[in-house]
């Protein structure tokens, strides 16, 4: 059984799969990473002001809010996330505030090459330093990319909510970024990611394993994306695999659905084997203000439903409030989360 206070620690890389509703079916319009998350491109920064936020100015969307001019091709960014959490279980009610993520990111991005790296704190062991991601990217042409380094696996919906069953129980949780070699094809209608995972060379609470992930998706009618992922990994403690379909559907520019279903077998932690489902239905009723409902089902071990609001008052500033009930234990969780991107 997962416990949210222990899980809401840090994000792998912030991204917005909900932007599919505006026709952004590939992440690279806004992010340097082919799989999204992390460093924003100039276009992505502009979009944060134009389409994501309710208020704000052009300068607020710039790196470091435009206070310091960053010369091309240098890029800077960073994440600060904090959460106020309330838990109400059968035995106790608890209030906790903590920093989830404090990372700076820097890199160089040219037409052909990109090199990115983060430096931050491990919020599980503050003030221990953490190099969450560092990778080099070569763009062979408009469609094909090769990337090597430490970054999250391309699997399923790249949701920043790492505490979801489809992230955490599939080994895609915060801190699971592995050393990979990735080949990706990003087309107008199709995309494909093939990622080979190498044994870890850094200290980690995650098993060092070799593996292979494949994710492919089909984009249609400008705002719809459906696909499937598979992963197989093997390490000294055992092997595991997972596979399943996902969908990111923008019914209108305001109404969207994220859906992922996975089946996993886990020889390392057998309790994690089983069927997983995640559903998020959201509606942006005023630009920058979303109401959403979520459902998570992990076999018989964890079922939760909830809902909340996302508010983007200004570029790179986000507030999320969510109330969630775990059906099997009748426990309630509520959290107020703040995210600032520099």
């Amino acid at each position: 059984m997962k416990s949210l206070p222990l899980l809401l620690i840090a994000s792998m890389a912030w991204g917005f799969p909900e932007m599919v509703r505006h026709g952004y079916v590939n992440c690279t319009a806004c992010h340097v990473s082919p799989d999204g998350g992390g460093m924003l491109t100039a276009y992505g920064r502009s979009l944060s002001k134009e389409m994501l936020s309710q208020f704000g100015s052009e300068s607020m969307a710039l790196p470091l809010a435009g206070l310091v001019r960053i010369p091309e091709p240098v890029m800077v960014g960073g994440d600060l996330r904090a959460v106020q959490l309330v838990t109400d279980t059968l035995t106790a009610t608890d209030l906790r505030f903590f920093i989830m993520q404090l990372d700076a990111e820097m890199g160089v991005n040219t037409d052909r090459f990109a090199v990115m790296g983060t430096l931050g704190f491990d919020c599980r062991a503050f003030p221990k330093a953490m190099f969450r991601r560092h990778w080099a990217l070569f763009r062979m042409n408009d469609n094909w990319n090769v990337r090597v380094g430490k970054f999250p696996l391309a699997y399923g919906i790249h949701s920043p909510e790492h505490h979801l069953d489809i992230r955490m129980n599939l080994g895609l949780d915060e801190g699971s970024e592995s050393y990979n070699a990735e080949v990706s094809y990003l087309g107008e209608s199709y995309d494909l990611f093939v990622t080979a995972v190498a044994p870890r060379i850094d200290p980690s609470r995650w098993q060092s394993e070799t593996g292979l992930a494949v994710r492919s998706s089909f984009n249609f009618r400008e705002r719809y994306k459906v696909g499937a992922s598979a992963y197989s990994g093997q390490g000294p403690k055992g092997s595991r695999w997972a596979a399943g379909p996902f969908a990111m559907l923008g019914f209108t520019e305001h109404l969207y659905l994220l859906e992922e279903i996975d089946y996993a077998e886990d020889g390392i932690t057998p309790a994690r084997a089983g069927l997983y489902n995640y559903t998020k239905l959201g509606w942006e009723f005023v630009q920058g203000l979303h109401v959403f409902g979520v459902g998570e089902f992990a076999g018989t071990s964890h079922q939760a439903i909830g809902g909340g609001f996302n508010y983007y008052p200004a570029p790179h500033f986000e507030v999320t409030t969510q109330l969630q009930r775990t059906l099997s234990t009748s426990e309630w969780y509520a959290w107020l989360q703040m995210h600032i991107y520099l």
Binding site: G23, Y24, V25, N26, C27, T28, A29, C30, Y43, R139, D142, N143, L186, G187, E188, E222
Partner: peptide, 11 residues
């Protein structure tokens, strides 16, 4: 119009 490299559909 299609915007590259991200294949953004610009309408």
């Amino acid at each position: 119009a299609v915007g590259k490299p991200a294949m953004v559909k610009i309408r």
